[in-house]
Nucleic acid binder design. Structure first.
Lengths: 356, 356
DNA sequence: GCCGAGCATACATACGTATGCACACGGCGT
DNA sequence: ACGCCGTGTGCATACGTATGTATGCTCGGC
């Protein structure tokens, strides 16, 4: 019992297959009468048009790939949620794709095999040639939340430098001098830009960030948790996980315990909050924590995380708009949109203990 | 500049299109020589086989739909993660689909339009006819984590009754007598089964659950948060959100504050933990909280949630195995797998204050 | 009564790949 | 020298839909 095709419907309704195709799309050239007959036949056979046949014929799929990192990262999930709604409003379907770096060639193939009309990529690394490859092959592509230095494709991000500057200024204004930071990978534009701006504003305020007060690693909960433990223990910057000797040696050279820590995203910050709880350090009484993104969880009572809000809904809307425009007209030259960030003051930060 | 097709490759390599098709799949009937020539031509053109053309011809797509609820629910995300890996091992691709109940007809069409070879459905409601429809149309389907009463399709779930019984027994053993519960929707098998077993075991232990101590609602963080607030305030069971009069009246008839609350899943439990923090009630000193699922977040220090562990990795593996088997042989009769749950004792529960 | 206009439908074909089958070629055995 | 077989390739076609074009029909106008 194979699924019914438009030919089956045509036979039952006593018309030709093309007429079925037109009737179901309410083509004005088909008479009311025939439309009704075709619809009845289709319903009685439980006919569902084949998406493969259709897309083969029209060269369009109505699907858009969204390339994200780990699926269990709430930031990506919120982004997907926003994108889903926006794409749907444009009649497009979202296909989520994760991008394991070790086989990005597979990802490229999957994007270029005709299964999607366009791509929104959220995992771009700074040196990645994926955007270039996609653009060269004519696949409409938008980078979201991550940028590359070349202007090859459309890009939507928030102003990471401005946002990180807000966090730094807030810490300075609250009198913090013993400041630490958990940054993201330097291979990403978000990691690089947030770090650079945060350090610049601190330095301009006369409180340069010491290397020993910096941890740099993946945007994961576990790294935030571990990094905060190291910072509290005063482990030196070059102490790597599992290197017990270096860590022990570093403990002796510990500077004063930081009174504030900036985390380059909320996932790291929430990891840090959990790490603080594990280390018995009270937030905000003993430690100020500030994140970046303002994911939904940040507002939950147990975190109550002060953070730099990224306008994710607008960013998603913009990304979808740029993509739709480019699908409609692939010859557009690359555009870049940068939206402003905003500081959200909640309960995880307060004035430094020593501040007068 | 349109993407290259196998015809283009054939022309360049000086062979016929079918030979290209065979050469790229390393068909033994094609000579080493020709394979090399075809590969070179394909590479130089940047040829990527069209998934549409291929699937139209083979009637298979290598794609499996996974129907989940809200994307921001960490339980679904973890499930997707597990499923993704297992499907990949079987050479299958995962396509995530959310299922807005108000247009489940759209979901059905999307599943039957030939874009996927099978479906894993995690959102089934008890009375849903979606599984039946899919099965009737011959789409290999597996229900995961949710069951329906009819044996129409393959089903994989954990033993929700046994698991909820473990939680109830633990609370009784710890001397809790003032017990409350936040249950899931009665329209789901998980909601129904966990509630029924929890109540049965409590009743058998001589501590029947009072209706006023029960809240029943969606499996969301927000509902868990709100429900815990109501339970702490002693709001009556029939007090509905926004019904201020009923709530005020109920406050007078409040029984003793509960010493323990069971939540039908971890998302609700974490909502409850946040609600408790918001209400200034300490966990576990003043309130024991037990969840269900053991999602990754449950182990984070700030939650440290005691919960009933669902063997999600095994469930996912089983679901994929059943689906693969059914894709290979659609005539199999429906099977049902039920895996045991396990109590995970962490810091969110302890003996009742009054327990001797 | 004939012709043109306009409407409804059918015919032919394209989209890109996979596969059953036929066919050409060369080597070997007798 | 002839026929057989195995090997490598091409030919024809199928998959399901959409669309450009041709065709048949009806109706109105003169």
């Amino acid at each position: 019992m194979r699924p019914a095709t438009s030919h089956d419907v045509a036979r039952l309704a006593g018309v030709s297959q093309p007429t079925v195709s037109r009737a179901l799309r309410d083509d004005p050239r088909v008479s009311r009468d025939t439309i009704a007959r075709v619809r009845a036949a289709a319903a009685s056979l439980g006919y569902v048009p084949s998406s493969r046949g259709r897309s083969l014929s029209t060269r369009a799929t109505g699907q858009v790939a969204v390339v994200v990192g780990e699926l269990d990262n709430p930031f990506y999930m919120e982004a997907l949620e926003h994108l889903y709604g926006r794409l749907e409003a444009d009649g497009l379907r979202l296909v989520a794709l994760t991008d394991p770096p070790e086989r990005s060639s597979l990802t490229v193939e999957r994007l270029l095999d005709g299964a999607v009309d366009g791509a929104i990529v959220m995992t771009t690394l700074l040196g990645s040639d994926l955007p270039g490859q996609l653009a060269a092959r004519g696949l409409p592509t938008v980078l979201l939340n991550r940028a590359i230095d070349d202007e090859l494709v459309d890009t939507v991000e928030c102003d990471n430098r401005q946002g990180a500057g807000l966090a730094a200024a807030e810490l300075l204004a609250l009198g913090h001098r013993e400041i630490a930071a958990i940054f993201g990978p330097a291979t990403t534009s978000t990691g690089r830009d947030r770090e650079a701006a945060f350090r610049e504003v601190l330095a301009a305020g006369g409180v340069p960030l010491a290397e020993a007060r910096i941890r740099r690693g993946p945007f994961t909960h576990e790294f935030g948790r571990q990094a905060l433990g190291e910072l509290l223990a005063g482990a030196p910057a070059d102490a790597r996980r599992g290197d017990g000797a270096a860590r022990a040696a570093g403990a002796g050279s510990a500077a004063a315990r930081p009174t504030a820590v900036f985390c380059a995203n909320d996932v790291l910050a929430i990891g840090a909050l959990n790490g603080a709880k594990g280390a018995g350090v009270a937030v905000p009484e003993q430690l100020t924590v500030v994140g970046f993104d303002d994911i939904g969880m940040a507002a939950w009572e147990l975190y109550d995380l002060s953070t730099v809000r990224q306008p994710l809904a607008e960013m998603a809307a913009t990304a979808v708009r740029l993509l739709s425009e480019r699908i409609a007209d692939p010859s557009l030259s690359p555009r870049r949109q940068r939206l402003p960030a905003e500081l959200v003051r909640r309960g995880s930060h307060r004035a430094a203990p020593a501040a007068r």
